[in-house]
Amino acid sequence: MRIGLGLPVVTAYPPTTQDWEKGAGIAEIATAARVADALGFHHLTCSEHVAVPDEVAAVRGGVYWDPLATFGYLAAITRQIRFATSVLVLGYHHPLEVAKRYGTLDQVSGGRLVLGVGVGSLQEEFELLGAEFDGRGARADDALAAIRSAFPTGTPSHTGPYYSYGGVTVEPHAVQDRVPVWVGGRSGRALRRAVELGDGFSPFALSPDEVATMLSRVETPEGFDVVLPSGPVDPLGDPDGVRSRLDSLQAAGATIVTASIAATGLDHYTDQLDALHSLARAQGAVFSPAAEGPR
């Protein structure tokens, strides 16, 4: 099992945002990324919302750093950690837009992109952006197939029920032959989409038992990743609780865990990262070798 991190600061979700994050910015994000990179954590996440209506923001939060801009900056100051969108809403973008912009990020980062995708659920945002909400699942399936075929080539072509194109040049394109794609969601259909069109399943708002039950109903291909969130963990204050949480996630089928760190400030956050690294390694989690140093 590998361990990644939900980046602090980049998402202000009211139930989980900590006080120290509210006044933090790119300097704190960069420090967290550098430390995680040096320790060999697998990935960092950043979510996407473009325009959240005020009444929705009171519940879901209104601060969402743009993943493309955020990861482009972090790629320049790290060496090995991966960058996972969690998630990019497929209905907000044309497939070639995703292939061009995130293919460029894959080039900039030296092949460290993980494209996390979802169909989206915030109808008001779809309407604000002029995107189709009805039928978004089928449209997302076609978009995902189109993106996958476009990533490894500068001359993509695709023929599908919603998107068709050919005779175009899209450069630069992704440096990875196969950019890992994690499909988000919490339904059986999302899991089937992940198995059929992706490389991993990244569910949310499901218990480990619920995930295990869902996985028991499908046959996953070799190398398929199950990416589960840890919820807030406190390695220094409650190491036994963290060990138990990691064990339960691995038993549910997790091959990768995205950890959220409880902290009172940036220094405490980085100390917690170090403690999580030591604790998880002792339980058999796999980390990359130490990076050569900051760029």
Rank of each mutant, 00 (worst) to 15 (best):
G200N: 02
A205C: 10
F71A: 06
F224E: 01
S202K: 11
P229K: 00
V242W: 08
L44F: 13
Y13M: 02
D199Q: 05
V211G: 06
T31G: 03
A33C: 11
R60Y: 15
F71W: 09
V89F: 01
Y102M: 11
Y165A: 10
R139M: 14
W182A: 04
D234V: 02
S260C: 02
G25C: 12
P14F: 09
H49R: 15
R193N: 06
L7E: 04
A280S: 07
G40A: 10
T16I: 14
P239L: 03
G62I: 09
Q250E: 12
G293S: 09
A24S: 13
T11G: 01
R139Q: 10
P203Q: 08
E125T: 02
G223L: 00
H43Q: 14
R178K: 15
W65T: 03
A36Q: 03
L105S: 10
H173L: 01
Y73V: 11
D209G: 14
A259H: 01
A291N: 10
F204A: 11
V257K: 00
T11I: 01
G237E: 02
A69G: 10
G253V: 01
L68Y: 15
R178I: 01
S187L: 04
A174Y: 01
A282N: 14
A252C: 00
D238V: 01
P289H: 14
A280F: 04
G241R: 06
D209Q: 12
T258W: 03
M214V: 02
A32T: 05
I81R: 03
I147R: 03
T78Q: 06
W65M: 11
A275F: 11
G154V: 07
P229F: 05
P156S: 07
I147G: 04
A30C: 06
I81Y: 08
S109P: 02
L144H: 01
P14W: 08
D209V: 11
D141Q: 09
G130N: 06
H158K: 09
A131C: 15
Q272F: 14
H93P: 08
G110Y: 01
T270I: 12
P221N: 03
A280G: 09
T78G: 13
G40T: 08
G241M: 04
R34C: 14
E127G: 04
I261N: 00
V181G: 13
P180Q: 05
A254H: 00
A32L: 08
V179M: 08
Y102F: 15
S278I: 04
L246M: 10
E292K: 12
A27Q: 14
R60K: 11
T255G: 08
S288T: 13
L276I: 01
R79T: 15
G23A: 04
S47T: 12
L68P: 10
E124F: 07
L115H: 02
V226P: 00
E55Y: 03
T16M: 14
Q107A: 11
S278L: 14
I256A: 05
A190F: 00
G231I: 00
L273T: 04
D54S: 10
L228Q: 00
F83Q: 08
